[in-house]
Nucleic acid binder design. Structure first.
Lengths: 346, 346
DNA sequence: AAAAACAATGTAATCGGTTACATTGATTCA
DNA sequence: TGAATCAATGTAACCGATTACATTGTTTTT
């Protein structure tokens, strides 16, 4: 029933017989206001249940203290770890997050960008959808000097900073590891080569083959959406191959797992018949049997770095050109799914 | 370099020699403005790159068109499915989401609530953290007539609407199923019985035992945080039991899986020695071997229902008291992990 | 003791919309 | 034809902060 009126700085000012300017300054802890006055104001604010009105400030200051986050999906272990990292940084700095998932669709990504734009986010953190070809929906931000930082799935945007791992190196290590296990016919399952992560992983895969004098064969490249179901379908394709490949390097763990499960169901032994390496070190990699060899990389840290870098830009600490790419460390974690040698000795 | 000035309704009004009131009305598609004028205004707005300023409206209207979402974690398949459902509804209605994860911590939940409050969300969607005892941090919203809808992990808040499944029934069916498989010593792994989901699942478990004349034994109740690691630790506890239990009903799939993997490593056969049932139908349930019997329930729909219900409240369609609890359907999915009978025949 | 410097506070314009309440001119009614 | 009605538009107050630029009173300097 009650329509509890909001308490404003005007109310505080009236009660204390000071001006709204003093109240405003006191609440921001401006050193120009005397300690005594500040205390009075803080106490009364507390007592009257004053709450700060962001909109008045935003309207006046022409900024929102909001950071937009666009990610392909929230439902991966990796992504939610990244977001936890982002949250930890931006909350400390007094920003709030506007999060949206593109669901891997270019159209939804455009919509999300529009929402972010209309909400006038101060900055943008983006990991691109599979499908996105055209980056025009980010031009509006560049035009308004809204900084954009891409992470993981980055873009070759001349104005953007990127936070990512060396995907090429990770893929090179994975593939080399498989080759060291004696594999010569290595399938690579990946997403359409539009995103850097898939382009680079493919390049690393190819280079490892080349460095070990193994011919590259186009038919060993399987393209899908890297879901668990897609992995199962890839398994069907693999079973059609003649001769069967002796290894699979998948661009993420989910897909690797889906594929492994389906192959096992078809009687393939892993790793004896086909060895497996994934990417991401998702918890599922320690559930599947045999446990999945994979590339581990630090999602939480990636989120922290991306957010910190963005906030530095906003505070004018970094010139936008100063740091253009931040590379994080990644590592190969060897588990049973790729160990042909030890498995053979069983 | 350019400091591109924002285009406002004043600019549009000036150029067209109309008043800002007319521009404002036209942009809201108010029928009182003539079609011709509207067209002129729309066209000019497009041409000049006008963008709507939410803050001015929010300041004036005293609402934000923002909905707060507080969840324990984003990184579960279930939760991100729920959020996808929420997004689909609120975006269509012109609202944006402020999402925050409590990380299962009561303290962070309080912080999140404060952030939401200071951002003056129009409504709140909440799934509670394990730890939360005290709901006082939601009182401020009630006081300001900000509607709160709880989903999945709900609260007995007299003013809140809840969207959830019949957890008791799900647990009853799971347990009964295990009993039908001949199990008599059924361990139940769950979280601290603070949240309805765990209280009700425990109650369903107990009732199933009672209805089948199996005595309840406190030592079969294992309490932890339901993570995969916690599942592994639970396995260690189970291995100490004498005699060994013949089944485990875990309150989520992750924990069930962690427990299964650890037990298998210790040489326990599943389901022959110990049968398993989980909860949630997480994709991992089809990866673990044997595949996990579980309770499936509709995350996407839960998100949609919660969001739609909230928006109805905001639009005054439902009286707050009209609908108090929305129950969604759930179902037992039987897989190999609980099928003693068929497994024995192998 | 007058001038200069400073600390503390106040005044008022500003951000960009919304909307109650006029105002204007055209149309309809009796 | 004058009054009533109505459609279209305008005027101006309001939402609640921020901050450049006064103003006031006190202390320091010379």
């Amino acid at each position: 029933m009650a329509k509890p009126k909001e308490v404003t700085i005007y109310d505080l000012a009236r009660k204390l017989n000071v001006s709204i300017a003093t109240v405003s300054r006191a609440l921001k802890d401006d050193p120009v206001v005397s300690k005594k006055t500040k205390k009075k104001i803080f106490d009364l604010a507390e007592e009257m249940g004053y709450r700060y009105n962001h909109f008045a400030r935003n309207l006046r200051e022409q900024r929102t203290y909001t950071i937009g986050v666009i990610v392909p999906r929230l439902n991966s272990y990796f992504m939610s770890t990244v977001i936890a990292g982002i949250e930890s940084v931006v909350n400390n700095e007094g920003y709030t997050l506007l999060i949206s998932q593109s669901s891997e669709s270019a159209g939804k990504e455009v919509d999300s960008a529009k929402t972010m734009f209309n909400n006038r986010v101060d900055g943008l953190l983006v990991s691109l959808a599979y499908e996105t070809d055209d980056l025009a929906h980010f031009d509006q931000f560049v035009k308004k000097d809204v900084p954009i930082i891409f992470f993981d799935r980055v873009a070759d945007h001349p104005d953007g900073t990127s936070v990512l791992i060396d995907n090429r190196k990770g893929a090179y290590e994975s593939t080399s590891h498989l080759i060291a296990q004696g594999c010569k016919h290595i399938v690579h399952i990946t997403a359409p080569p539009k995103r850097n992560v898939y382009v680079d992983r493919l390049a690393g895969y190819k280079q490892a083959l080349a460095d070990h004098h193994i011919p590259f064969d186009e038919k060993y490249i399987l393209i899908n959406n890297l879901s668990q179901e897609a992995g199962a379908q890839a398994a069907a394709a693999i079973l059609q191959m003649n001769p069967l490949p002796d290894a699979v390097f998948a661009a993420n763990d989910n897909c690797a797992v889906g594929c492994m499960v389906a192959l096992k169901k078809a009687g393939i032994r892993i790793p004896q018949d086909i060895a497996f390496v994934g990417f991401n070190n998702d918890p599922v990699s320690t559930v599947v049997e045999p446990n999945l060899t994979t590339i581990n990389y630090p999602g939480y840290k990636m989120g922290e770095m991306a957010a910190a870098s963005l906030i530095n830009h906003l505070n004018g600490v970094n010139s936008i050109d100063a740091t253009n790419t931040i590379l994080l460390r990644s590592e190969l974690i060897v588990r049973a799914s790729s160990l042909k040698t030890t498995s053979d000795s069983e």
